[in-house]
């Protein structure tokens, strides 16, 4: 990142309040988008000390879940079109969800249509098992991802 920041001046949005769920002992607590959103909203942006929620990269609406089929689709919006950090963000999402969901869920991660210049290749890269595995073996990338996931800066 010696070349300077890719998006030096991002728009920061307010954090939404966390909704305390009403406890209903008899309700059927299926996995819903808010569950997933609560897990990923606090991931730190690779560039800035703000969460993905604050940069409005993610929102509750951008997540869809099919609990029966075990599918999760996350669509995120990079802050700028040429953001090379899009893949890192996607990688973070994937790693975090892997921690928090049982392996039978299939997670699809995409950039929202039209939000990235290189949309297709980013999508392909993020959903390719082998490339994800390879990326996570790269120590530099791994460190960057871990920093985003476990950062205390927020």
């Amino acid at each position: 990142m010696t070349l300077g920041l890719i998006n030096a001046n991002p728009v920061v949005h307010a954090k939404k309040e966390r909704v305390a769920r009403t406890e209903d002992p008899h309700a059927d607590d299926a996995v819903d988008p808010l569950d997933i959103y609560d897990f990923v909203r606090d991931i730190r942006d690779p560039e800035h000390p703000y969460s993905l929620e604050q940069l409005s990269v993610l929102s509750e609406e951008s997540i869809t879940v099919d609990d029966k089929l075990g599918r999760i689709l996350i669509t995120f919006t990079p802050t700028i079109q040429h953001c090379s950090m899009a893949t890192v963000i996607g990688l973070c999402l994937r790693v975090k969800l892997k921690h928090f969901f049982p392996p039978h869920y299939k997670v699809d991660i995409k950039v929202s249509p039209g939000s990235h210049a290189d949309e297709e290749s980013v999508n392909k890269q993020l959903n390719d098992k082998e490339r994800v595995a390879a990326a996570l073996e790269n120590p530099n990338l791994r460190q960057l991802v871990d920093e985003c996931l476990y950062s205390n800066e927020l």
């Binding site: 406890e23 059927d28 607590d29 569950d35 892997k98 921690h99 928090f100 969901f101 871990d146 476990y150």
Partner: peptide, 27 residues
Amino acid sequence: LDDKKRTVRLEAVKCRQAWASTASRSL
């Protein structure tokens, strides 16, 4: 992690992180 109840799942996530990090961050 795949429990029927949300609160159990959330506790499981916390627990999993704690135990995973006893060695390293990786799971």
